[in-house]
Design a binder for these strands. Structure first.
Lengths: 210, 210
DNA sequence: CTTATGTTTAACCAAACGGTTAAACTAAAA
DNA sequence: TTTTAGTTTAACCGTTTGGTTAAACATAAG
């Protein structure tokens, strides 16, 4: 009956920070409790075990990202406009949640047994059955707007190009972007434009091939 | 004076497998010892602490990858050929060491404090001073072979497109490549061709812009 | 053979960890 | 006021973990 603050949400936020930062094994219940400003036992009152708390947070993050990506894929625009807006919004989405991709991939790289059903739950049916983006691409190919190609190759190129900056940022800052006055936001805007230009015109029909 | 097998190498191999799989915190010294077929104390005889062993292996992997990438960047070929061979050899390299990228990025995402000097050591000077690939691109731009663009944008697109398959493989298998008879090698060969085509022709000069 | 040095092991230790317990506290309901 | 149920805590527990120790073993040098 007592609910001074919404402790549950405070715990969730603290746990998310720690888990995203350090993964399941690196995260310590004590650190989560400290960051939430509560006692360790209260953690077990709300979420019975570390694993349950972790799965809870993984589901939350994974579903959130999947839901937002699925939203980006719903589009009535012609292919050129769709591609441009998708890249832009996808990079914005990643920029806001730049730690999530690596968190998800770290878990999946370990086999993802703990969260396997979380994954199946979170993938919206539309995404599974027939990606709307794939249909758009096939139409553009039929119309001769873009060259014929396995749509999955296009998706991998778009997503990989957009995602890589955020996954590799720490090392890129040393290797490529090592200026003192590096302007992240400006660079990301340039990045959007570059990805669109390279990929869209890279898909344009050419004389020597279909 | 006794060296029945090269235990040191056996240990290194076992430790690498466990660390790459589970990260610093997920890896247990006992598991490494078991996998190497030795006692746990012997681990501390060779590598005094878990952290030292981990740093050792991180350096080894990071240097190996950096050295091989730097090798791929040394080229006298014209830009078109260079791009084609780089993509092909880079994907081959990743395919052989498909667990390394995520291992490196997991560490870096945690701040990489433990390995920060390892990183500085491992980055060859050539890579730091003036990437040979950047020079090649600037020449191709001057010759009008490709459109004028920040070379870093091209690098991010090439590397991101090539790398993404290996980082995202577990989730891609569910989302995109969920056929029973998925032929990984064949797909990767198609991937090489697609990346080259999209990027090279995406960089081709166009009527409406420089 | 003896010594010296490198190699290998079982047994042990302190600290950290995830998790439990039982009791105290709070405030709305009866 | 008493009851009831949710909330919060300090103290505790068993296990796991990284790391140590001391002794046994192997082999080349003196």
């Amino acid at each position: 009956m007592v609910k001074p603050d919404d402790k549950e949400e405070i715990i969730l936020k603290a746990a998310m920070e720690v888990f995203v930062d350090k993964g399941l094994y690196g995260a310590k219940m004590q650190e989560i409790a400290d960051r939430a400003g509560i006692n360790k036992a209260l953690l077990h009152y709300y979420y019975r075990s570390k694993e349950k708390l972790y799965v809870h947070i993984f589901k939350f993050i994974f579903k959130k990202i999947m839901r937002e990506v699925a939203e980006l894929l719903k589009s009535d625009l012609p292919f050129e406009e769709f591609l441009k807006t998708f890249i832009s919004k996808y990079i914005d989405l990643l920029s806001k949640n730049y730690r999530f991709p690596l968190f998800i991939m770290r878990e999946l790289s370990q086999g993802g047994k703990i969260v396997s059903n979380a994954i199946k739950e979170a993938i919206p049916n539309e995404l599974n059955e027939h990606l709307p983006a794939i249909k758009l691409m096939e139409e553009a190919m039929d119309k001769g707007e873009i060259v014929k190609m396995d749509p999955r190759q296009i998706i991998l190129t778009v997503v990989g190009s957009s995602l890589f900056y955020f996954i590799g940022e720490p090392i890129l800052r040393v290797l490529l972007l090592n200026e003192e006055s590096f302007d992240r936001e400006k660079f990301l805007e340039e990045r959007k434009e570059a990805i669109f230009n390279i990929i869209y015109y890279g898909l344009a029909p050419r004389g020597d091939q279909q």
